[in-house]
Write a protein that binds this DNA or RNA. Sequence first.
RNA 1: GUGGGCGUAGCUCAGCCAGGUUAGAGCGUCAGGUUGUGGCCCUGAAGGUCGGGGGUUCAAGUCCCCUCGCUCACCCCA
Length: 421
Amino acid sequence: MPEFRTSPGMRDVLEPEASRWRHLIDTFAAVVARAGYGQIMLPVLEDLGVFTRIGDATDVVTKEMYDFTDKGGRHIALRPEFTAGVCRAYVQHRPTTPWKVWYAGPNFRYERPQRGRYRQFEQVGVEVLDVDDPMVDVEVIALGWEFFSRLGLRRVELHLNSLGEPADRLAYTEALRTHFESRLDQLSEAARETLARNPLRVLDSKRPDDAAAIASAPSITEFWSESAAEHYGAVRDGLRALEIPFIENTALVRGLDYYRRTTFEYVGGTLDSAQNALGGGGRYDGLVADLGGPQTSGIGFALGVERTLLACDDEGVFPAGDSAVEVYVVDTTGGAEASLVAARLRAAGFSCEQAFGQRSLKSQMKSADRSGAQVAVLIGPDEHQAGTLTVRSLRGQSGQTTIDAGDLVEHLRRVIAVTCE
RNA sequence: GUGGGCGUAGCUCAGCCAGGUUAGAGCGUCAGGUUGUGGCCCUGAAGGUCGGGGGUUCAAGUCCCCUCGCUCACCCCA
């Protein structure tokens, strides 16, 4: 083993996977840009306090933060998610509203890595600030749906719920606490610990031991105030109008404390593990105020890039693109002429690479073949002396012609156009 | 934080259960067969602290202990 490797939960993304990432983010950017969302690039580091607002009952904040004190004595953290940073930026810059932004980038959580879960993980997402209209909930949810469908995913489920207004949520939380505390004997050890911190999240338990207590628990639907029920109804109607199928899931409580009213999650239908949430989001109408800004409504979602790619693998869609160059230059006269030819071809718009290391013709031709290039341009002593180049086809039958060096670009324009068809 | 599985060549792995001469294979790399021409085939070469440390033994890749790493699951969440 080498002396140094990636730190646990961190990975290098090499080709062809890297191209896939780029295409995924390009696809996302295209979808949301068409809806008028602008990109926001946030620092990876924020003051710790920005993130502690997202929930002191969550592991994300209490146990999983990468935090440290910098040389100036500030208590800093690597971001575990984007939403809090977006709200901080909103308070700092006070942009005109509605403010609709999208982002892509890494987040950090100190967890035990496993399939679909890394300590550094990539998310793409959108946030809309200062619009209370349920139609914006519909738009946001629809954008995520559109993205998955554009990637070719067909087995994604949209789960939908409402946590009610803050007072509803609070009343429901207390009702759950009462319910579960009277049935401690029906709860697993782990669920009892969860209950002490956050009764809502007991609903999220997938342990069979807890199933009975969860099934008999009160439902959030009984606690919705009129305004919350109305908002939620409008969101459902809007999704139906767009023919976006959704599953109402009153146990969908989401991980972070700031959510209220609409919450939703995109679940990978083929991912069998507990890491099957491709992404999720909801309303966080109090978060901007918590960060010192005015009372401002907000809604958004974040999608996990690694998990989305896993889902693509499982469904056999969104393969890596072909990154092969068009032309490969082989030179047995030292390589200097190959450099000139390659530079000319690139300037003319061709993709092109050349062999290095003054290897034998046979060896260079092998590299040319493996590069996936359509044609090889050969420079040997004969061509060097005569001012010519030999152009050899690497696909199909192996014809070759020798041309004047000056005719190369024009010749390749014909040859490659034909081969590309 | 807890548990299972796995660490042998650049990659994928065999060898370990029943310890025993110079640790193997395929792929990849390089060279040659083809004195200028890739793909298929053939030949050869380079490449290994058997994750690390300790122990048992005449002898450890193989057995035991510890440790580090990877991985899957719990948990948590994207």
